[in-house]
Computed example of a mutant assay.
Amino acid sequence: MSKEVIKNPWTTLSGESKYDNRWINVTEYQVLNPAGGKGIYGKVHFKNKAIGIIALDEDDNTWLVGQFRYTLSEWSWEIPEGGGPFEEEPLACAKRELKEETGLTAKRWTQIARVHLSNSVSDEEGFLFLAQDLEHGEVEFEETEADMKVMKLPLKDAVAMVDRGEITDSLSVIALQALARMRKI
């Protein structure tokens, strides 16, 4: 199916940055909606792309990373993931994130998805990869990852964690379900 070019039905009257840091910018726009009514629209602009990786060994084992997520006030098991600068290729970012969080490097890489994570309020774009032919090394956690735990488990068990609602991170859910569908798990 080809993408049809559709004219933007929204009219932006003005925009004002309300918050800005090194990761995000929040802008409030005064708009005319598609019906012509006046309103506001808030947009969260992400200053990096989101990257997620499923590392898979020859025995169908994968690696999850766990950490306490400040925004949720709870522990979260996820695939290795992080952010990457827009000017850097997503694959280069994925290689770096996998090494940082698990110590793994991979000889074979496959992009399995490109997603928009919350297109109603943000422009965040994510890239998901499968990493295979793995080699082990040392983790290189960032300062915010000091409490991170790494768990190796069968891929089917990670998919079951998604099915039971134990993995709720969107990149992880999308990647694990996509791989399960591709591998008919």
Rank of each mutant, 00 (worst) to 15 (best):
M1P: 11
K7Y: 04
K7N: 12
T11P: 06
E16Q: 15
S17C: 13
K18R: 12
R22H: 05
V26A: 07
Y29A: 07
N33F: 02
P34Q: 06
N48H: 11
I54C: 12
I54P: 06
N61P: 03
L64A: 12
V65M: 05
G66F: 09
R69W: 14
Y70T: 13
T71H: 08
T71R: 04
W77L: 10
G83N: 14
E89Y: 05
P90D: 01
L91P: 00
C93R: 03
K95R: 11
E97A: 04
K99V: 04
K99W: 01
T102E: 02
T102R: 02
T105W: 00
R114C: 05
N119M: 09
S120L: 13
V121A: 11
G126D: 05
L128V: 11
L128D: 02
A131F: 02
L134Y: 07
E138T: 13
V139D: 00
V139H: 03
E140D: 13
E140G: 11
E142T: 02
E142N: 02
E143W: 00
E145R: 00
V150H: 01
L155V: 08
A158E: 08
V159H: 04
V162A: 03
G165Y: 06
S172V: 12
A178S: 13
A178P: 00
A180G: 11
M182E: 15
K184A: 12
